[in-house]
Nucleic acid binder design. Structure first.
Length: 293
DNA sequence: GAACTAATAT
DNA sequence: AATATTAGTT
């Protein structure tokens, strides 16, 4: 079997760095054999693998444990969902980067997936080298928090291996025209066309903090630790332990996050009412369990 | 005053 | 829309 050959991954190649270790990846693949092979490959490199064979299973996992997933690897030909539907649905459910792997080698299919939000498209058969560096996608936009005025930080954990060096992960522009796709590559985007004169010497340019997926995940992790009672900016900030991050940053993000939760909850109430009706029917059937004598 | 958060500004 | 900043409350 070629399967077993693929499984003989050279573990020695993994010694270069311990980077994929701890990266949690959700693999969605309907074919059990393929799922097993890919999962094994990932595990050898140190990924933490969760699996699903159906789109609905994947959705359940994401709904309940979205913050425990860093990366999603999915097939597009699933029994219970169309190829692009899975991308759309998962994209709404999770902020993690989505990688598609499929045997379909059509250019239009590949581009379609990329336009639908996939970060990367791998053509089967997937080999170890395809999978080895996927963890880099979780660092898609690096943390840039190095600013002046570093206060006293007496606490360091070890959670963040944030490397600001060149983690060049191509981000397929999501705002491209869809009809014209020729192989135009722009490697350099040095946009010097800003003719804005900075009047003052003491204006080093404030750059807004960008809440990347990674940063948001740290935020969610901190939220989980402090619990609902302690979900306040100062405590969250301490648990996040990200250098340069300010309490105000967390406050702002927390506000946005709460709005998001509320909006989600309001949306859920409609469906919740429907479910309640169903439950009520079942419940009324069971009410006669307590018939004495 | 410090921390929190809702409201507002960029 | 996302993030920063202000302002009002505890």
């Amino acid at each position: 079997m070629t399967c077993e050959q693929v499984l003989s991954v050279d573990v020695t190649e993994n010694n270069a760095g311990s980077f994929p270790i701890g990266v949690r990846i959700l693999v969605v693949e309907s074919d059990p054999t393929c799922l097993r092979i890919v999962s094994k490959m990932l595990q050898v490199f140190g990924y933490e693998v969760k699996t699903a064979t159906r789109a609905t299973d994947a959705m359940h996992i994401l709904r309940e444990k979205e913050d425990e997933i860093n990366l999603i690897l999915t097939e597009t030909h699933l029994p219970d969902m169309d190829q692009y539907e899975i991308l759309e649905t998962v994209g709404e459910l999770s902020s993690s980067p989505i990688v598609v792997f499929s045997a379909d080698n059509n250019e239009s299919t590949i581009l379609g997936c990329l336009f639908k939000g996939a970060e990367l498209y791998l053509v089967k058969p997937v080999i170890k080298n395809d999978v080895k560096n996927l963890w880099q996608l979780t660092y898609r936009t690096k943390l840039k928090t190095a600013v002046s005025g570093e206060g006293s930080n007496t606490f360091h954990g070890g959670s963040a291996e944030q490397n600001t060096s060149s983690l060049t992960v191509g981000n397929p522009a999501s705002t491209m025209g869809m009809t014209d796709q020729k192989g135009k590559r722009k490697e350099l985007e040095e946009t010097d066309n800003d003719h804005e004169y900075i009047d003052n010497l003491t204006a080093p340019k404030k750059s807004k903090l960008v809440w990347t997926n990674e940063l948001h995940n740290i935020f969610l992790q901190a939220l989980r630790i402090v619990g609902v009672d302690g979900a306040h900016p100062k405590k969250i900030l301490q648990h996040m332990n990200v250098p340069g991050l300010k309490k105000e940053n967390v406050s702002s993000h927390l506000q946005k996050y709460r709005l998001y939760l509320k909006r989600e909850q309001d949306g859920m109430q409609k469906t919740a009412v429907l479910h309640q009706h169903l439950i009520h029917k079942e419940g009324s059937l069971n009410t006669q369990t307590r018939n004495s004598s």
